[in-house]
Design a binder for these strands. Structure first.
Lengths: 113, 113
DNA sequence: AATTATACATAATATATCTATGTATTAAAA
DNA sequence: TTTTAATACATAGATATATTATGTATAATT
């Protein structure tokens, strides 16, 4: 069982959201940001983060830019236009899904006339 | 890409919730119920539903009872005591996760002093 | 008579996570 | 000053859970 069984699917949404807020971010920065802003409730493992970024890049939602910081390599990502559209849509759809889930999980008992 | 990329992990929560509301339910009934109560926004495929029920049963959260309806077999499930505890906890944790997600997805910009 | 709904089940496939491991530089602590 | 922690990327292998497709069968509706 996963520690966070609901992260699956949500990670992509989180990434799209963060990237839509800032012009450029690199992987490690994103992982710090998610941990901070989630109150340490969500921790993205590297084995999930980097493949996810690569996927988004290969699908044309992100573009990457390698930057050399001293002797260390950093990879900055930015949303493409396609990525911006996808971010908006995906976040909206996530909200919609959550509304549906809350409907299901809040319903004490469905009307049985 | 899955049609509903956020269902993964949530199906278990949905099942635990429905089963905690009613004393006995069978698979097909559950799938109808979810479709109805979600406004057709969530459709559980049979390939996901039955294995999920079998998992919950094998893990001791559900007990099954075969019932013959005329010539047709029906399999009623009920929550065990362990399942009731798990349902409560799991639903609570799901809410907690959603709160965290909304925090992340609503934040316009984290405070940068 | 043919189609749809009910009712279960599983195999093959897809894919997104996790854990573990690897490489390497830089900063902080012991 | 040696060791540890933090920064920064990446990937292989294991695991979990969903999808699609297929199968069997009865009952109800068109």
């Amino acid at each position: 069982m996963y520690k966070n069984e609901w992260l699956k699917g949500s990670l992509r949404t989180i990434l799209l959201k963060l990237m839509s807020e800032r012009p450029r971010m690199y992987g490690y920065e994103i992982s710090r940001m998610v941990e901070k802003r989630s109150g340490s409730n969500i921790r993205i493992t590297e084995g999930a983060l980097y493949p996810a970024l690569h996927r988004l890049e290969s699908q044309g939602y992100l573009i990457a830019e390698r930057v050399q910081i001293g002797k260390r390599a950093r990879k900055y990502y930015s949303l493409t236009a396609k990525g911006q559209t996808e971010a908006q849509e995906n976040i909206e759809q996530y909200f919609s899904h959550v509304r549906t889930m809350l409907l299901l999980l809040s319903d004490k008992q469905s009307a049985t006339p």
